[in-house]
Nucleic acid binder design. Structure first.
Length: 735
DNA sequence: AGCACGCCGACT
DNA sequence: GTCGGCGTGCTC
């Protein structure tokens, strides 16, 4: 069915009109006319006029059922010669848009982030050997010719490089007709992974777990498995078997990873197993590579992608498995423009595409644990450590009983353990999740505290750089000599430790030790970080002091002592996930030790040795933590029934939502049970079914939100019901 | 996202 | 009297 228009002779003519999703915050696709002779189908990527400019878009269906004023209709400018987005991909984008309360156009835009990839890659120029032979045979020429006989075609630079001659030798042979130019298809971004390449024999738990995952892949139907086991229990080896099976079935695989810092080690492991590297996808890929990967993923030429959360929006042709490694990691949450948790969206992608999704973590998120406990996910638990590596033995250091020396932060117990480690010629790692020198500076005369002018956070002193910096907004100023309030000179006091300050203390106690400080303040970027990590692995440091940067999968064979400087950080900050985060971080960091045959130790400095997180960590029994945390979480999520409960979602930010909740509490004291959740987590809370009234307020402006909520309170249940119907998300739709 | 339109404050 | 601040609305 098309719209009538008039042809040149005034006769009515059928015109094909299709919906096109444009990358703007609009609620639905716009309709465009398909010009005569242009081929487009659902999923095609096109260029269309929009107002004064041209934009890219996706044809969203075979034809439009929208009644648009025909006078407004414009024609598609161009259709690109690249694979159309699959039906699954379009359904996925629609689903994400409705789940996250985002305009579908903006969600679709995430799938179009490589515009130059829409045009086919140009063929590359190559050379092929002919029957002609040169009149004058020189050694260089003979070498080139004999080498060239080994392959059907070469690139000019590839051949000169391989033969060890300059390109002028090749040019000379081309001129004599020994080589003829040919066009070669562009090379793939990576070689094909071979599922049988480095298959390692698995035993016991690992074998059983791998068998379960392989069976899930073979069934080619939707399922979610949570693979959980301590650091070093062989989770990666296990899920590699699932990857191998998907490859054997000819399907594509996506491995999501939270941090790009973890990738080099991961890529090597993958290569050892599959004989080739996976294609990488993350925000700082070179544009050229980015385009190649995008296109080759769409064509099905790339078989395995290892990427950050945005890889979920690559235009896979035949996706058959998604692995979410370190599934608990907060880096999976995107909290700007479109709010989503890639872990959950991966599950949805699997449901839509009818394939298995595997969530992997040594310390699963509480949500995933609950899903596993309730039978929505199957739970695969790996008990033993792979290759017989022993877990470190862990002890709490009660800081009330073993306080540090005045002005210091390290307990004598910790210093003694470091001394012994040094005597054995082994390495120590001190972990403190605080950048800089001191988190707060104050004036000892008038009590003035240095605060950020934009945020309300304290300014963190960075002594190496001589600045005070806000870790929220990045604001920074030079550290003054005098107090800006009372003018007193040299009476500013640093309060509390950061890694720089711990380094200072360690230098005093171990003047001859080689110390490396690792934090995101390290100048020189990722490259420098990798160099430092290599140096540590080679034993070029005795003591490493680091922030959570050191928690991610690097292995230091000689690192036999891990010391947590302040395990209590983060437990008191009011975040509903504080305990969970602390548990996960401490587990990860202590897991850094004990991967060698050497005996290894972990010392955890705390003022709260009886805190459930501390007890769970030293007991080595994660169940202790999860059982209690799930009960606590349910209590917290349970608003008092019979009163109004509201979930406030801000479309802008969690901070925004919090501000509005404060306003609401003041404006309407009888209202209780207001939970403030960021947009990425509120829908999950709904899944848990904890809320009696579900109110999702979605608005661009704060005033709208305040208005919505007030109206709802005044008008009572009827209004609530209508609001609910109007904008709620079906909680069951998640699975 | 851009871009135009429109309504109120401080200026040549 | 205008120039320009950014709030609001529109793009098939």
């Amino acid at each position: 069915m098309g719209k009538d228009s008039l042809d040149l002779f005034g006769a009515p003519r059928e015109v094909r009109v299709v919906p096109v999703m444009v990358p703007l915050p609009v609620a639905k696709p716009y309709s465009y006319v398909v010009p005569d002779g242009m081929h487009v189908e659902a999923g095609s990527i096109v260029q269309v006029p929009l107002g004064p400019r041209q934009v890219f878009g996706v044809v969203w269906a075979g034809e439009s059922d929208d009644k648009v004023d025909p006078k407004k209709l414009k024609s598609i400018t161009a259709a690109f010669d690249c694979h159309p987005l699959t039906k699954d991909m379009r359904s996925f984008l629609d689903w994400v848009a409705s789940y996250t309360l985002s305009p579908p156009g903006l969600v679709a835009r995430m799938a179009l982030r490589a515009p130059a990839a829409f045009d086919p890659e140009p063929m590359i120029e190559g050379l092929r050997l002919t029957d002609q032979r040169p009149e004058r045979q020189t050694p260089a020429r003979l070498r080139v010719i004999s080498l060239a006989e080994e392959a059907p075609a070469w690139t000019r630079s590839g051949l000169s490089h391989a033969a060890g001659v300059s390109t002028s030798v090749i040019d000379g042979l081309v001129a004599q007709g020994v080589f003829e130019p040919v066009f070669l298809p562009p090379p793939p971004v990576t070689a094909l992974p071979d599922p049988d390449y480095g298959a390692a024999p698995l035993e016991g738990d690992q074998r059983d777990a791998a068998d379960q995952l392989v069976a899930a892949v073979r069934s080619a139907s939707f399922s979610v498995s949570l693979v959980d086991g301590v650091t070093g229990s062989g989770k990666t080896e296990v899920y590699f078997e699932a990857v191998a099976e998907a490859l054997k079935l000819g399907r594509q695989v996506l491995i999501l990873l939270p941090e790009i810092a973890l990738t080099p080690a991961f890529l090597e492991r993958f290569q050892d197993r599959f004989g080739a590297k996976p294609a990488e996808w993350h925000s700082d890929l070179a544009p050229r590579t980015r385009e190649k990967v995008w296109r080759q993923v769409g064509e099905g030429q790339v078989r395995v992608v290892a990427g950050a959360r945005s890889a979920l929006f690559l235009p896979f042709d035949n996706l058959g498995l998604v692995i979410v490694d370190e599934e608990h990691d907060p880096a999976y949450k995107q909290e700007d423009r479109i709010f989503y948790n890639a872990r959950d969206m991966a599950v949805v992608r699997g449901r839509i595409g009818q394939f298995p999704v595997v969530l992997v973590s040594a310390t699963p998120s509480v949500e995933s644990r609950v899903n596993a406990d309730q039978g929505r996910y199957s739970h695969i638990h790996l008990r033993s450590r792979f290759g017989g590596a022993a877990l470190p033995d862990l002890h709490l250091v009660d800081m009330r009983r073993h306080p540090p020396a005045r002005g210091g932060f390290l307990s004598p117990v910790m210093l003694r353990a470091m001394e012994k480690t040094r005597e054995r010629g082994e390495q120590s790692l001190l972990f403190l999740n605080r950048r800089g020198y001191a988190p707060l500076t104050l004036c000892r005369v008038c009590g003035h505290r240095f605060q950020c002018p934009n945020c309300s956070a304290w300014l963190v002193e960075h002594r190496f750089r001589g600045i005070l910096q806000c870790h929220h907004c990045g604001h920074n100023e030079k550290t003054p000599d005098a107090c800006p309030e009372c003018g007193t000179l040299d009476h500013l006091a640093a309060c509390g430790p950061g890694v720089e300050r711990i380094a200072e203390e360690v230098e005093k106690s171990f003047p001859e030790s080689r110390i490396i400080v690792l934090s995101s303040d390290l100048s020189g970027g990722v490259k420098r970080l990798r160099l430092e990590l290599e140096a540590i692995a080679k034993g070029e440091a005795d003591i490493v002091i680091g922030t959570q940067l050191v928690a991610k999968g690097h292995n230091f064979p000689n690192m036999t002592l891990v010391g947590i400087v302040d395990a209590d950080i983060g437990l008191a900050n009011g975040d509903p996930r504080a305990a969970e985060r602390t548990f996960q971080l401490l587990s990860q960091v202590t897991g850094r030790a004990g991967r060698t045959g050497l005996k290894s130790h972990g010392l955890i400095q705390t003022y709260q040795p009886l805190h459930p997180v501390m007890q769970a960590i030293v007991s080595g029994d994660p169940e202790m933590f999860y059982e209690r945390e799930i009960v606590e979480r349910e209590k917290a999520l349970m608003p008092p029934f019979g009163r109004l409960a509201a979930i406030i979602i801000s479309a802008d930010s969690r901070a925004d939502a919090e501000a509005h909740a404060r306003g609401l509490r003041q404006a309407a004291p009888p209202v209780s049970g207001i939970s403030v959740l960021g947009p990425a987590e509120a829908p999950l809370a709904l899944v848990r079914g904890r809320y009696r009234f579900r109110l999702l307020v979605h608005g661009r402006r704060g005033a709208d939100m305040q208005g919505f909520v007030s109206t709802m309170i005044q008008n009572g249940p009827k209004e609530r019901a209508s609001l609910h119907v109007q904008i709620d998300i079906d909680p069951q739709s998640f699975l």
